[in-house]
Amino acid sequence: MAVIALLALVLDVLIGWPDAVYRRVGHPVTWAGRLIAALDRTLNKGRARRAKGALTVVVVLLAAMIPAVLIQAWLGPWVAAVLAWPLVAARSLDQHLRAVAVPLAAGDLAAARGATAMIVGRDVTRADTPALSRASLESLAENFSDGVIAPLFWAAVGGLPGIAAYKAINTMDSMIGHRTPRHEAFGMIAARLDDVANLIPARLSAGLIAIASGRRARAALRVTLRDASAHRSPNAGWPEGAMAGALDCRLSGPRVYADRVADEPWLNAAAPDPDAADLRRGIALIRRATVVAALLLAAVALL
């Protein structure tokens, strides 16, 4: 199964998901999104919303896993690896963060704010360079875990069905796993399942970031072990804490959303705010961590 994960990563890094293909057929995540949205519209009303949310989870998982199981059984691991390829997001993560880093380094805050708004949910319309750098580095660390390491982990564990199930869970969490009046009951099972699915990958991601940070590895681990549990998420604090320690900057902290101000605790609070140079260093760090992940997958595949 590690071969499937490794080949999917290599294809993603080399090719990504081409725009021409996306325009013609979309993307597996958008296909799952349409199913989730339809079930949300149909079932998320009236009584027993938690039970209806659980039914949604079952339907979406079956829709993702049954074709994956059949394809892997009938067509083998090479075809499974090709079909797992669009479910890894290393290349797109790098592209989205460079879209912030380039204008930020040039002092073009308007362009940097626009690019940052594409990758975070908070309000960045008046964010300065430190706030944009923090938001982008947090997104980089969290999405390294959710978009790269978690899919690879579940592909290594379960092949194409494993990665398909994980992406279905992660997509459900992003669409219905919110603590809002509409989704708090309906999306509860999806949100809890996403927490469980990311439990191991988040900690692996922190370790990979620490390894890739070289001489800062001990600091990255120290900040992670000290501060990760203070994060609002049971998982995101691990890669974000490792990033904060590796770059010697503070992350998280208060942020503004459309309807509220969230007074989140700091990660690595005594360190200075990050700047544009730290964002570029963070992007390079995640590239190195991705290489380390590839080497580990290759070692497992050889064994």
Rank of each mutant, 00 (worst) to 15 (best):
I200G: 03
A246P: 13
L204R: 00
A185M: 04
D259Y: 03
D248A: 15
A244C: 13
R216L: 01
R255E: 11
L193V: 14
A242K: 00
G237L: 02
I200M: 11
A230L: 10
L251Q: 10
I200Q: 02
D227G: 02
A228Q: 07
M243I: 08
A270L: 14
G214R: 04
H231I: 06
A206R: 00
V223W: 06
A220H: 04
A191W: 05
L251W: 09
L267H: 07
A244Y: 09
L199Y: 14
Y257V: 12
L225E: 09
G241W: 06
M243N: 04
D194I: 00
E240C: 04
A190I: 00
D259H: 10
P265S: 13
L247Q: 08
R226I: 03
R218D: 15
R222M: 12
A185T: 03
G245Q: 07
V223R: 00
L208Y: 01
R222H: 11
A258P: 10
L251N: 10
V261R: 15
P234N: 09
D194R: 00
R215N: 11
R250V: 12
S205A: 15
P201H: 03
R232D: 13
R215Y: 02
A262P: 07
D194H: 02
S252A: 15
P234S: 12
R192D: 02
Y257I: 09
R203E: 08
R250G: 08
P201Y: 05
A197S: 12
N268T: 13
W238H: 15
A258H: 14
S229F: 07
N235E: 10
A190F: 03
E240R: 01
A206D: 09
F186H: 02
P201C: 07
L199W: 15
R192A: 06
V196D: 07
D227H: 04
W238V: 06
R192K: 15
C249H: 06
D263P: 01
G237P: 07
A269H: 10
F186S: 01
N198R: 01
S229R: 15
N268P: 12
L204A: 07
V223M: 07
D248H: 14
D195N: 06
V256N: 05
F186W: 03
S252N: 13
A269P: 15
V223D: 07
D259T: 08
A236T: 05
P239T: 04
L208K: 00
G187S: 03
G187E: 02
D194L: 02
G237K: 04
A197E: 01
I211C: 01
G253T: 11
A270V: 15
L251M: 08
S233T: 09
I200A: 14
G245M: 08
R255H: 11
D227L: 01
I209T: 05
A242T: 08
A210Y: 01
S205I: 02
A230W: 04
N198G: 08
D259G: 06
A219S: 14
E264M: 09
G207I: 00
D194C: 03
L221F: 05
